[in-house]
Write a protein that binds this DNA or RNA. Structure first.
Length: 287
DNA sequence: CTATTTGTTTATCC
DNA sequence: AGGATAAACAAATA
C-alpha cells in the first residue's frame, strides 16, 4: 500500500506522541521486520526517551527520540502506522476495510501522554531499524532529495535517463535510488499522464518527452502529497488512480478498457488508446 | 485448490 | 556489463 504520500500520512499519525516519552514497549519480537535490529535492543533503547521529531523521505519514515536515537520504519507492502485510539476508524480502513488486527502489531510504543503508537504489518515486508548518532542515520542520508524539491532538476532527470537507456521507463521509475517514493500506482499514473505506453524504453524518449516526464513526475508527487498525505483518499476521478484497481476499469480520459499486463515484474495498468509507443531508434534510422 | 497484491533483495541467465 | 526474470519473504483476499 504505502508509497510517498501514504507513508507521509501514516507517519503523521504518530504526531500524537510528540514530546511524550516512551513508558513501555511491546514487540512481536520474532517478526521479520526486526531482521536488522533486534526487537529487544529497540525496546531497551527507546524506553524513557522522548519523541522529538518525525521525518519522512521517499517510502521511509524516521522518528527521532531525545537527541541521538533514530527509529527508522519502512512500511514494506502492508505496513501501517496509527495510534491505538484510531485503530478502528482511521481513514484508510474507515469505510468497509477491516481495521488492523492486534495480532499483526509488530511494535507498540506506550507513551507518557497515554497514547500508544502502533506499527502494524501483516506481511512483514516492512523493516524497523535503530541508529544512534547526532545526525541522521547513513541509510537516511542515502535517500535522494525529494522529487518535489528544487534539487530534483530536469538536468538530474536527464542524467538518470542517460545512464539507463535500455531499461523500461516504468521499471526505472520504480527504482528508489533515483525516484524515492514512487511505487507501482504512482509509476502507472505518471506513464498515463504522459501518454506513454509502459512498453517504452528510456532511449525512446526525445527532448519533448523528457521535459513532459519531468513535469509529470513532479505533478504526480505534488498531487499525491496534496490529496493523500493529510486526509487520505478519495482521489479525484480524473486520475488513473481510481480506475486501476479493479479489472474492467476504464480510462478516465477516453473510456477505453484499461489493460493489465506484467511489465518489468509488476502489474502495469494502462490505456492502449491514449498511451503511445514511441518508435524506437532502429526504426527511425530505417525510415 | 488457484492466483493476486501499493516492496525490496538476491540469484541466475543471456 | 546491463538488463530481464524468478524467487523469496508472508498473509490476506478473491
Amino acid at each position: 500500500m504505502p508509497e510517498l504520500a501514504e507513508v507521509a500520512f501514516f507517519a503523521r499519525q504518530w504526531n500524537a506522541g510528540m514530546d511524550a516519552s516512551v513508558m513501555r514497549v511491546t514487540t512481536h519480537s520474532s517478526a521479520r521486520v526486526f531482521r536488522e535490529s533486534p526487537a529487544k535492543r529497540i525496546a531497551s533503547t527507546l524506553k524513557g526517551q522522548a519523541l522529538t521529531e518525525i521525518l519522512t523521505a521517499g517510502k521511509q519514515a524516521a522518528f527521532r527520540f531525545s537527541t541521538d536515537i533514530w527509529l527508522g520504519i519502512h512500511l514494506g507492502m502492508s505496513g501501517r502506522l496509527f495510534t491505538d485510539g484510531s485503530r478502528e476508524n482511521l481513514a484508510p480502513w474507515a469505510e468497509g476495510d477491516k481495521p488492523p488486527q492486534p495480532t499483526h502489531d509488530r511494535l507498540v510504543l506506550h507513551m507518557s501522554n497515554g497514547t500508544a503508537l502502533v506499527f502494524n504489518d501483516p506481511r512483514m515486508f516492512g523493516l524497523v531499524r535503530l541508529y544512534r548518532g547526532d545526525t541522521t542515520p547513513p541509510w537516511w542520508a542515502a535517500i535522494p532529495p525529494a522529487l518535489s524539491s528544487p534539487l530534483f532538476t530536469l538536468d538530474v532527470l536527464k542524467k538518470v535517463l542517460d545512464s539507463h537507456p535500455g531499461v523500461l521507463l516504468k521499471s526505472l521509475l520504480l527504482d528508489q535510488r533515483y525516484f524515492p517514493g514512487i511505487g507501482n500506482w504512482m509509476a502507472d499514473e505518471i506513464m498515463w499522464r504522459t501518454r506513454l505506453s509502459p512498453h517504452n524504453r528510456v532511449r525512446a524518449l526525445g527532448n519533448k518527452e523528457v521535459r513532459l516526464l519531468y513535469k509529470t513526475i513532479r505533478e504526480v508527487c505534488n498531487d499525491a502529497m496534496e490529496v493523500v498525505s493529510k486526509s487520505w483518499y478519495p482521489a479525484p476521478d480524473n486520475w488513473l488512480f481510481n480506475h486501476r484497481w479493479k479489472r474492467g476499469g476504464r480510462c478516465p480520459r477516453d473510456g477505453a478498457s484499461l489493460l493489465y499486463e506484467q511489465i518489468g515484474g509488476r502489474t502495469a495498468c494502462w490505456c492502449e488508446k491514449c498511451q503511445r509507443q514511441i518508435k524506437n531508434y532502429e526504426l527511425k534510422i530505417k525510415n
